[in-house]
Design a protein around this nucleic acid. Sequence first.
DNA 1: CGTGGGCGGATTTTT
DNA 2: TCCGCCCACG
Length: 736
Amino acid sequence: MDVSHILAPLNDAQRQAVSAPLLPTLVLAGAGSGKTRVLTHRVEWLVQVEGVSPHGILAVTFTNKAAAEMRHRIETQLGLPSAPLWIGTFHGICHRLLRLHWREAGLPQGFQILDGEDQQRLVKKIIRGLNLDDARWVPREVSWFVNAQKDEGLRPKHLKDDGDPTRHQLIKLYQAYEDTCRRNGVVDFAELLLRCYEILREVPGLGEHYRARFRHVLVDEFQDTNTIQYNWMKTLVGSTSVPYVVGDDDQSIYRWRGARVENLQQYRRDFHDVQLFRLEQNYRSTGNILDAANAIIGNNAGRIGKKLWTSAGKGAPIRLFRAYNERDEAEFVTAKIREWIARGGKRADNAILYRSNAQSRVFEEYLLAARIPYRVYGGLRFFERQEIKDALAYLRLISNRDDDASFERVVNLPTRGIGARTLEVLRAHSREHVKSMWAAAFECNEDLGAKAVSCLQAFLTLVEKLDAETQGLPLHEQVDHVIQASGLVGHYQKDKADKGEARLENLEELVSAARGFEPEDTDMPPLMAFLSHAVLESGEGQAEAWEDCVQMMTLHSAKGLEFPVVFLCGLEDGLFPHQRSIMDVHGLEEERRLCYVGCTRAMRQLYVTYAEQRRMHGVDNFGAPSRFIAEIPLELVEEVRPKVQVSRPVYSPQSRPTPQQATRPGGSNLSMSGRRFQDDTPAGAFKLGQRVRHAKFGDGVVLSLEGLGTNARIQVVFEGQGTKWLMLGYANLTAL
DNA sequence: CGTGGGCGGATTTTT
DNA sequence: TCCGCCCACG
């Protein structure tokens, strides 16, 4: 058989990895070295050359995005139908297995999944239920403890109570939380993995069945696996299947949430004669950028070892900018972006990367003033929005009455006279009789006043009615009916504050999402499939994602992405590396890997900036330049404004950026003229300082603009009415 | 029952 | 500085 089409587009190292013998394999894939390509071509190799049935292949990733990308590439590039393969995230695959084997797993057929927020609410409820002080027992920390145990594969019964009272109480809380989840028929994210792992090991025949089926198990981003994920994989592979693992120890940046880089080495020990391949040729960055990245990461101990190289040229030097303060830094970045655009580059070619989210604000102000559209990644995702979760809670109650989290969320939304008192009675009853809130609501009539009983009755009838009325309807009509008949739509219509309208739009979008939903698993009821989908795939905002905007995000969320121009900002000791990681070597090494990840995002130009003075939490900090800066070889760096040149910025330290100031000496001398904020939104019609008229508030002056598209807001000082923020889309302002 | 002001806390994030 | 949470008030 002719296999040249599989190997032809690959370099030598990639070829070796793709065509490796059917033995345990580790591919150390450097940043930008064609990792996904190797994975997809390996699948093709297995099927077309080794004659492996697609049915026998399992490919696991961390994010839905990576899974979708892989599925897409296998279908289009390789022309294989991807349906018979199992491709998914750890959580997605475990979910699928638990749906298939809910009986063996001891779960109700319609079990639901708690997201992080749901989990925290539930934990909080349990803490209160045990009459504990929730200042001492912080819900966040307690759920963190629970998750950490589950990630290690530990149940409450496995935990040693060593006499430490804090630990003792935490174990009790873990146990209570477990009991509640069981009673409610819900599982959290960590539970999906742990429960799946347990049934594979403990249910007779089940592990054997899947080991016989999945002869090839491929795992992406292996350096991010935690203990339970690693053990799960090991169980699934057993001694008969072939693991094929891809990762990069230098890009392990999730130790703080349980990931163990050591799993790479552990894997080499646990599976004998693991073949090791290194992908070191980089197709993304220039030589200088790679040299800098290699030099930085070279300071870490215990690496498996790898050196990125490129056949492209050295490229531009790394440009280092020392700012006076965070505003000076933002001004510099804005000016450079403006230059790039003026030379015909796209706005989206530029990425501003920072260590912590709070840093985005100053950049936003300056980009706004410069009328350069931007997008900040990492806000609330669609299915995490309040109104969406409200709607989902009704839908979840319809499929599972015992879901207390959902019950509590909407029992009084919109308000129907069920107050804290009533709920307290229900909670007490539910605790005492070990029943769900729903069940308790039927049994508490003697303990409640007549008014409470009738209000509660109205709610119970409503849910039953919603259930009955949506039976047999297509999914999107079910959703539409529920948001209308539950009163949610009416509730948000009344909410005249600026957010109400946006929430209504989101609810409508939920109906559209339901209309367009195509379940992968056809034997599940559509509503249940949709609800699971909503939790497991919380939904990147698609709407405005493709507009040409400057990209702003944390270093963590930049992993896996690439940009022609990267601004690595805020390189100050204490901020990056972060104060809380500076103490121990492991923490510091992880920060260094984060820095390595940041550098290797850049394709053509890498700017590194730091500020001598930075205002954080309302106080000025004077941090030394990050130690990582000193780790970049001097000959690769060009300082943009050397220290000797002591020109101070002309604006006063307290001034806010305005278009005029942003172009004064000290910044760039490029003209602002003619660049409208965004041509296709109403924002383009208004400028700072412009006079406008509002039907109700009268005349005023535009103070500032914020956000993009449908989210754009405008701040106006009205004569005699004060300052108001308005949603630009609804404000109906006229320019005067 | 809903809101406004006072208080404390403020890496990083996916599923 | 800013945001989210809690409690007190209307």
